[in-house]
Protein backbone atom coordinates (compact mmCIF):
# COMPACT_ATOMS: atom_id res chain seq x y z
CA UNK A 1 0.00 0.00 0.00
CA UNK A 2 1.57 3.24 -1.09
CA UNK A 3 1.00 6.02 1.37
CA UNK A 4 0.50 9.52 0.09
CA UNK A 5 3.08 12.16 0.96
CA UNK A 6 0.64 13.85 3.29
CA UNK A 7 -0.10 10.64 5.19
CA UNK A 8 3.61 9.91 5.59
CA UNK A 9 4.20 13.45 6.75
CA UNK A 10 1.37 13.12 9.28
CA UNK A 11 3.16 10.11 10.80
CA UNK A 12 6.84 11.07 10.49
CA UNK A 13 6.57 14.79 11.26
CA UNK A 14 5.73 14.40 14.96
CA UNK A 15 8.57 11.90 15.40
CA UNK A 16 11.22 14.51 14.70
CA UNK A 17 10.80 18.02 13.28
CA UNK A 18 7.35 18.54 14.75
CA UNK A 19 7.70 16.50 17.94
CA UNK A 20 4.84 17.30 20.34
CA UNK A 21 7.09 17.41 23.39
CA UNK A 22 10.27 18.90 21.95
CA UNK A 23 8.86 21.44 19.53
CA UNK A 24 5.30 22.11 20.60
CA UNK A 25 6.22 21.68 24.31
CA UNK A 26 2.98 19.77 25.01
CA UNK A 27 2.40 17.03 27.56
CA UNK A 28 5.24 18.21 29.80
CA UNK A 29 3.20 17.74 32.98
CA UNK A 30 2.81 13.99 32.59
CA UNK A 31 6.37 13.68 31.28
CA UNK A 32 7.59 14.78 34.70
CA UNK A 33 5.37 12.39 36.63
CA UNK A 34 6.09 9.09 34.90
CA UNK A 35 9.78 9.25 33.99
CA UNK A 36 11.42 8.21 37.25
CA UNK A 37 11.52 4.66 35.92
CA UNK A 38 11.50 3.23 32.43
CA UNK A 39 8.54 0.89 32.86
CA UNK A 40 5.80 3.41 33.74
CA UNK A 41 7.19 5.68 31.02
CA UNK A 42 6.82 2.90 28.44
CA UNK A 43 3.31 1.97 29.55
CA UNK A 44 2.23 5.61 29.62
CA UNK A 45 3.72 6.15 26.15
CA UNK A 46 1.85 3.17 24.73
CA UNK A 47 -1.44 4.14 26.42
CA UNK A 48 -1.26 7.70 25.14
CA UNK A 49 -0.45 6.46 21.63
CA UNK A 50 -3.51 4.21 21.60
CA UNK A 51 -5.81 6.89 22.99
CA UNK A 52 -4.57 9.67 20.68
CA UNK A 53 -4.93 7.42 17.63
CA UNK A 54 -8.45 6.27 18.59
CA UNK A 55 -9.63 9.76 19.54
CA UNK A 56 -8.23 11.19 16.32
CA UNK A 57 -10.12 8.56 14.31
CA UNK A 58 -13.41 9.13 16.14
CA UNK A 59 -13.24 12.91 15.88
CA UNK A 60 -12.19 12.73 12.25
CA UNK A 61 -15.18 10.47 11.52
CA UNK A 62 -17.70 12.91 13.02
CA UNK A 63 -15.78 16.11 12.24
CA UNK A 64 -18.31 17.40 9.69
CA UNK A 65 -21.24 17.01 12.06
CA UNK A 66 -19.72 18.68 15.14
CA UNK A 67 -21.19 22.12 15.90
CA UNK A 68 -18.26 24.54 16.07
CA UNK A 69 -19.44 26.17 19.29
CA UNK A 70 -19.27 23.00 21.35
CA UNK A 71 -16.44 21.24 19.53
CA UNK A 72 -14.04 21.35 22.51
CA UNK A 73 -16.69 19.79 24.75
CA UNK A 74 -17.40 17.07 22.20
CA UNK A 75 -13.66 16.33 21.94
CA UNK A 76 -13.38 16.16 25.70
CA UNK A 77 -16.35 13.78 25.97
CA UNK A 78 -14.85 11.48 23.34
CA UNK A 79 -11.43 11.45 25.03
CA UNK A 80 -12.90 10.91 28.50
CA UNK A 81 -15.12 8.08 27.25
CA UNK A 82 -12.20 6.38 25.49
CA UNK A 83 -9.93 6.66 28.51
CA UNK A 84 -12.63 5.27 30.79
CA UNK A 85 -13.32 2.35 28.47
CA UNK A 86 -9.61 1.53 28.10
CA UNK A 87 -9.21 1.71 31.86
CA UNK A 88 -12.19 -0.62 32.41
CA UNK A 89 -10.89 -3.10 29.87
CA UNK A 90 -7.45 -3.06 31.48
CA UNK A 91 -9.00 -3.72 34.89
CA UNK A 92 -10.86 -6.71 33.46
CA UNK A 93 -8.13 -8.27 31.33
CA UNK A 94 -4.79 -6.88 32.54
CA UNK A 95 -5.32 -6.13 36.19
CA UNK A 96 -1.62 -5.82 37.04
CA UNK A 97 -1.04 -3.21 34.35
CA UNK A 98 -4.14 -1.30 35.42
CA UNK A 99 -2.89 -1.22 39.00
CA UNK A 100 0.50 0.07 37.89
CA UNK A 101 -1.02 2.79 35.76
CA UNK A 102 -3.53 3.73 38.48
CA UNK A 103 -3.39 7.52 38.59
CA UNK A 104 -1.63 7.92 35.26
CA UNK A 105 -4.51 6.56 33.24
CA UNK A 106 -6.68 9.42 34.49
CA UNK A 107 -3.88 11.82 33.65
CA UNK A 108 -4.19 10.88 29.98
CA UNK A 109 -7.45 12.84 29.75
CA UNK A 110 -5.65 16.01 30.73
CA UNK A 111 -2.72 15.43 28.37
CA UNK A 112 -2.47 18.54 26.21
CA UNK A 113 -1.27 16.49 23.23
CA UNK A 114 -4.70 14.89 22.91
CA UNK A 115 -6.70 18.09 22.76
CA UNK A 116 -3.98 19.69 20.66
CA UNK A 117 -4.08 16.98 17.98
CA UNK A 118 -7.87 16.74 17.93
CA UNK A 119 -8.27 20.47 17.52
CA UNK A 120 -5.37 21.07 15.16
CA UNK A 121 -5.52 17.95 13.00
CA UNK A 122 -8.46 15.58 13.34
CA UNK A 123 -11.05 18.35 12.97
CA UNK A 124 -9.82 19.16 9.45
CA UNK A 125 -8.31 15.94 8.08
CA UNK A 126 -9.54 12.58 6.83
CA UNK A 127 -9.61 9.42 8.90
CA UNK A 128 -6.46 7.78 7.52
CA UNK A 129 -4.27 10.84 7.98
CA UNK A 130 -5.74 11.41 11.44
CA UNK A 131 -4.89 7.85 12.47
CA UNK A 132 -1.30 8.29 11.28
CA UNK A 133 -1.05 11.68 12.96
CA UNK A 134 -2.29 10.16 16.22
CA UNK A 135 0.19 7.27 16.03
CA UNK A 136 3.03 9.62 15.09
CA UNK A 137 2.35 11.98 17.96
CA UNK A 138 1.92 9.12 20.40
CA UNK A 139 5.25 7.57 19.39
CA UNK A 140 6.92 10.97 19.40
CA UNK A 141 5.72 11.49 22.95
CA UNK A 142 6.63 7.96 24.06
CA UNK A 143 10.12 8.33 22.57
CA UNK A 144 10.90 11.41 24.67
CA UNK A 145 9.48 9.80 27.83
CA UNK A 146 11.69 6.77 27.27
CA UNK A 147 14.83 8.85 26.69
CA UNK A 148 14.27 10.90 29.85
CA UNK A 149 13.26 7.85 31.91
CA UNK A 150 16.32 5.93 30.66
CA UNK A 151 18.71 8.48 32.14
CA UNK A 152 16.69 9.06 35.30
CA UNK A 153 16.42 5.37 36.18
CA UNK A 154 20.01 4.53 35.19
CA UNK A 155 21.64 7.44 37.03
CA UNK A 156 19.07 7.72 39.82
CA UNK A 157 18.72 4.08 40.87
CA UNK A 158 21.40 2.29 38.84
CA UNK A 159 18.73 0.13 37.21
CA UNK A 160 16.90 -0.25 33.91
CA UNK A 161 13.37 -1.70 33.85
CA UNK A 162 14.01 -2.76 37.44
CA UNK A 163 17.19 -4.75 36.68
CA UNK A 164 20.41 -3.69 38.37
CA UNK A 165 22.80 -2.30 35.73
CA UNK A 166 25.50 -0.65 37.84
CA UNK A 167 27.37 -3.52 39.56
CA UNK A 168 26.72 -3.74 43.30
CA UNK A 169 30.46 -3.79 44.01
CA UNK A 170 30.82 -0.24 42.64
CA UNK A 171 28.78 1.29 45.42
CA UNK A 172 30.35 3.09 48.35
CA UNK A 173 28.38 0.86 50.72
CA UNK A 174 30.19 -2.16 49.25
CA UNK A 175 33.63 -0.57 49.19
CA UNK A 176 33.41 1.00 45.72
CA UNK A 177 33.37 4.68 44.82
CA UNK A 178 29.98 5.07 43.15
CA UNK A 179 26.81 6.64 44.52
CA UNK A 180 23.39 6.95 42.86
CA UNK A 181 22.41 10.51 41.98
CA UNK A 182 19.39 11.12 44.22
CA UNK A 183 18.68 14.35 42.37
CA UNK A 184 17.63 12.27 39.34
CA UNK A 185 14.59 11.02 41.25
CA UNK A 186 13.29 14.54 41.80
CA UNK A 187 10.80 16.01 39.29
CA UNK A 188 13.11 18.97 38.69
CA UNK A 189 15.63 16.66 37.03
CA UNK A 190 13.02 15.62 34.46
CA UNK A 191 12.73 19.25 33.37
CA UNK A 192 16.50 19.70 33.19
CA UNK A 193 16.93 16.49 31.19
CA UNK A 194 14.05 17.47 28.94
CA UNK A 195 15.77 20.82 28.40
CA UNK A 196 18.96 18.99 27.41
CA UNK A 197 17.04 16.80 24.94
CA UNK A 198 15.38 19.88 23.41
CA UNK A 199 18.79 21.56 23.19
CA UNK A 200 20.32 18.58 21.39
CA UNK A 201 17.30 18.25 19.12
CA UNK A 202 17.32 21.92 18.13
CA UNK A 203 21.04 22.12 17.49
CA UNK A 204 20.91 19.03 15.25
CA UNK A 205 17.91 20.32 13.33
CA UNK A 206 19.37 23.81 12.95
CA UNK A 207 22.52 22.33 11.43
CA UNK A 208 20.43 20.41 8.92
CA UNK A 209 18.65 23.59 7.91
CA UNK A 210 21.93 25.38 7.22
Amino acid sequence: MALSKQTKEAFLGPLNVNNPVLVQILGICSALAVTVQLKPALVMGISVTIIVALANVVISLIRKSIPMRIRIIVQLVVVAALVTIVSEILKAFAYDVAMQLSVYIGLIITNCILMGRLEAFAMTNNVKDSLMDGLGNGFGYAMILVIVAFFRELLGSGKLLGFQIIPDSWYVANGGCYENCGMMLMPAMALILLGCVIWAHRSINDEEKK
Partner: peptide, 18 residues
Protein backbone atom coordinates in the same frame (compact mmCIF):
# COMPACT_ATOMS: atom_id res chain seq x y z
CA UNK B 1 -24.81 22.65 12.15
CA UNK B 2 -24.55 26.08 13.75
CA UNK B 3 -28.19 26.45 14.81
CA UNK B 4 -29.07 26.32 18.50
CA UNK B 5 -31.48 23.42 18.05
CA UNK B 6 -28.87 21.30 16.26
CA UNK B 7 -26.22 22.09 18.89
CA UNK B 8 -28.50 21.07 21.76
CA UNK B 9 -29.68 17.93 19.97
CA UNK B 10 -26.11 17.00 19.09
CA UNK B 11 -24.91 17.44 22.66
CA UNK B 12 -27.83 15.36 23.96
CA UNK B 13 -27.29 12.55 21.49
CA UNK B 14 -23.52 12.42 22.12
CA UNK B 15 -23.98 12.33 25.87
CA UNK B 16 -26.66 9.62 25.69
CA UNK B 17 -24.53 7.48 23.38
CA UNK B 18 -21.48 7.82 25.62
Amino acid sequence: TESNLYTILYATVIVVIV
